[in-house]
Design a protein around this nucleic acid. Structure first.
Lengths: 212, 212
DNA sequence: CAAATCATGTAAAAGCCCTTTACATGAATG
DNA sequence: CATTCATGTAAAGGGCTTTTACATGATTTG
């Protein structure tokens, strides 16, 4: 009947799936108070275990954060891949969709996004996350490569650079105006529209005319 | 001889300028360990006062952070204004200089930058800082306004939008690849060059041809 | 100039969080 | 069924935060 263990309201000595429960509780707290806005002890209280319990699963609070960031990067990568959709229906549309997917992820999963980009993790954890981050970036980089291949050789910029420009603008918009609450500066348009316009102008500068 | 008080190695009962000393010590710690990388108590130890002393000057750790962010925004605004230089020697050159000044500030003053953009301050403090942030943004916005006035009416985009695009790209680059150490992802070019290229392409898209 | 007052710093204490260690429980294994 | 292993608890040490009562010395004022 039940996927895992017993889940009577009062659980027994063992929790059943403490890792998942910790992650879920932490995500809620991050979404509400930011990546620095919760304590390890607070999560144990929400979950209903003793303060020492999580140490069987995570070396410390940062390890929980890194675990969340890791999972976030994986979901992020999938979201970007889905948006790119192999370049269909056409390269330009798909490329813009990747940009929109970037912002959509930041908006819909602010807790993951914060864990990925705003939690200041140790060098060790940062290094371990680098691969996951690179995977996400690769989606954008390859999309850029496919896109610019439609340009004549002479006018073709490095795909890496194009990807970095779009990534930077998307991340800048997400950081400054994205999210759903507190830190967000007020601007007279939706972040998604701002990015869409910015990417269009940028691509125009590369030689993609908007009205061919 | 001395600007302020006695500064014999062993100071007396009163410090003389605890606020400044706290700010300086905090900046050093922020630069090294990030905005979440120091404790209030640690700063008091560095400065050499009791843990309760700072409470005469700052309500709490966040108030110190906000104070630093406030000062950071003021210096940031000045740096951008200096780069704009009234639009001289010409609008385009000056505009690009503003972008470079943005990155230069993030690179040279990582502690201020982190306090301004990466410290998650309370809503209350965030609101109080909004004005200081707006002042900085205004410099870029007015530069954008002057710049796009050279475009024919029909092709002239809103200055606000142009300013937001450039701000976002600069902030994205600074966040992802700027700074000088740990979090910085490795890329095959300097952040400054990446921004310069991005702004040039973007302005090209707006109708500023690079080779008139 | 001396006394009163005010700003600034200290000491001590309460409360919370982090983390480790020794022990308890119950699930899995043979 | 007995053993072993994974997982959770209790207790304790140490650090940080913040408050309160008190100490010091700079500043103001008669």
């Amino acid at each position: 009947m039940n996927g895992k263990k017993q889940t009577k309201s009062g659980r027994g000595y063992h929790h059943g799936d403490l890792v998942e429960a910790m992650v879920m509780a932490a995500l809620k707290l991050i979404a509400e108070f930011g990546p620095a806005g919760f304590t390890f002890a607070e999560v144990t209280r929400v979950v209903g275990v003793s303060p020492a319990a999580p140490y069987r699963h995570f070396r410390d609070r940062d390890a929980l954060m890194a675990f969340i960031a890791q999972r976030g990067f994986e979901r992020f990568t999938k979201a970007l891949e889905k948006a790119w959709n192999g370049g269909k229906p056409d390269r330009l549309t798909a490329f813009k969709a990747v940009g929109q997917a970037y912002l959509a992820f930041a908006r819909k999963e602010p807790a993951y996004y914060a864990a990925m980009f705003e939690a200041r993790l140790s060098d060790e954890h940062t290094r371990a996350l680098a691969l996951a981050g690179d995977n996400a970036f690769s989606v954008l980089r390859e999309a850029a490569e496919v896109l610019i291949n439609t340009l004549p050789d002479k006018k073709r910029p490095p795909a890496m650079m194009v990807a970095l420009h779009v990534w930077s603008m998307a991340h800048g918009i997400a950081s400054l105006f994205g999210g759903d609450g507190q830190n967000r500066k007020a601007i007279p348009m939706e972040p998604e529209d701002l990015l869409e316009a910015g990417v269009l102008i940028y691509l125009d500068g590369l030689g993609f005319s908007q009205t061919p």
